[in-house]
Amino acid sequence: MADRASLQNAPARPGSQERPFLAAVRRFRKNRTASMGAAICIALALLAVFAPLVAPYDPVKQSFRDQLRPPCADHLLGTDEFGRDMLSRILYGARLALLVGFVAVSIALVAGVALGVVAGYFGGWVDNVIMRVMDVLLAFPYILLAIGIMAILGPSLVNVMIAIGIVSVPEYARVVRSSVLVVKGEDFIEAARAVGATDRWIITKHVLRNCLGPVIVQATLSVGRAIINAAGLSFLGLGAQPPTPEWGSMLNAGRPYMFDAPWITTFPGIAILIAVLGFNLLGDGLNETLDPRLRQ
């Protein structure tokens, strides 16, 4: 790879011999924030995928003999009011947290990127209409809008994903639109158009590829926020319903027992914290490695 690159732009300048992607990977691996975030996220994903193998107990099986047991050798994180093993419930909860995070972000990503590209690329009244609608969505406080949408759709975990997805659309639309506006003015777009490329081809081959960086950063950071807000909505009783092992609803269910059995309300919160911290670290790290302005 290095050979071809150095042949193409010989005499090679130091540092220019790597392809941009490999250079980004190298910077990423050297970045401590990013590596730590990636490690947490990978560990979380592995635990979620292999939850049935790792979890010592069935997360929904009740055992009235084992109600409200403090952390001990049999139940490392104790048991809840129905005698269910907290560790197993938290491990299964990681599946839901990641699912909610990814589905919500995917909804926001697909809709936001599409709207942002159309607005930025075509400009004019299309741009105006799309961005004014986004302004209106941004005029609502994040949680309040999500709650309003939940009021329309009714309480359920699927609706939480939809609500959080919709609320996050404007951020993507804005990020994508602004990078499209930058890319649109570049010479290579002009060149592509001169050789007869269609709008569709230019958008998929040039425009989308060039706004990938900011979108990846935005997506990583918003997975963390989606997890925290989904847990919040479930905590209010609007999301996952018992006996689903979801972190937010576990916290809610543990509230009546929080003085006698504080482990029920302590551990799911720590799980949320670790998961969100992982995605925030990863997002910050990616931002530092992908954004040329922050690169030292």
Partner: peptide, 18 residues
């Protein structure tokens, strides 16, 4: 600060209450 922005508000509340 990094840990602070990653904390669920309602959980902090519960912990402070306890």
């Amino acid at each position: 600060a990094l840990v602070g922005v990653s904390m669920p508000v309602f959980w902090i509340g519960l912990m402070l209450v306890i």
